[in-house]
Design a protein around this nucleic acid. Structure first.
Length: 157
DNA sequence: GCCAACGTTGGC
DNA sequence: GCCAACGTTGGC
């Protein structure tokens, strides 16, 4: 896979809930349950084919576990309208569902998770959003950052 | 399990 | 519209 002209993103998931191996088995998954406006707005700006760093959060170790890509653009997140869903939002309505989700497809898993602690030691990654915006679950990634992380991840760094 | 960071809510 | 209280995220 070479660099495309599309967008590049980092998306976090807790591997106990949904890991890169879950995505590998399912091939595609709807990224529902995002309840943060900034993250939602980034999803709305995604295009099919955009590349994604799949990040394991709250993990041992936390870090980038592999690559995914966007396989369907943002549509309303129906879980916000479902009272039985843990993601139910009483303020969401069919006319204004408030929240969005994209579909993500598996691309590859790194030989091992590229740990956050390792990323922090790479000088060229010093201004990665991940370090400053640690609570933002979906964020854009600069091309040079993305390519470097992919290179390190494939090496099993 | 602790706690810092920070987004959201709600009283005023 | 400010801001204190509260809840959540996520590293360690």
């Amino acid at each position: 896979m070479s660099s495309s002209d599309g967008g590049r993103w980092l998306m976090k998931s807790e591997p106990d809930v949904f890991s890169i191996d879950h995505l590998r088995k399912k091939k595609r998954e709807r990224w529902d349950g995002v309840r943060n406006y900034q993250a939602r707005n980034f999803m709305r700006s995604m295009a099919v084919g955009d590349q994604v760093l799949f990040y394991h959060s709250n993990a041992e170790p936390s870090g980038v576990a592999g690559l995914a890509r966007i396989t369907a653009p943002a549509i309303p997140d129906h879980t916000a309208l479902d009272p039985s869903s843990e993601y139910f939002d009483p303020k969401a309505t069919p006319a204004d569902p408030r929240w969005s989700m994209v579909e993500v497809g598996f691309v590859e898993a790194f030989p091992r998770v590229l740990a956050l602690a390792t990323l922090r030691q790479v000088p060229d990654l010093a201004d990665l959003w991940l370090f400053q915006r640690s609570r933002l679950s979906i964020q854009p990634v600069e091309r040079h950052h993305f390519d470097l992380i992919v290179s390190l991840g494939r090496q099993g760094a």
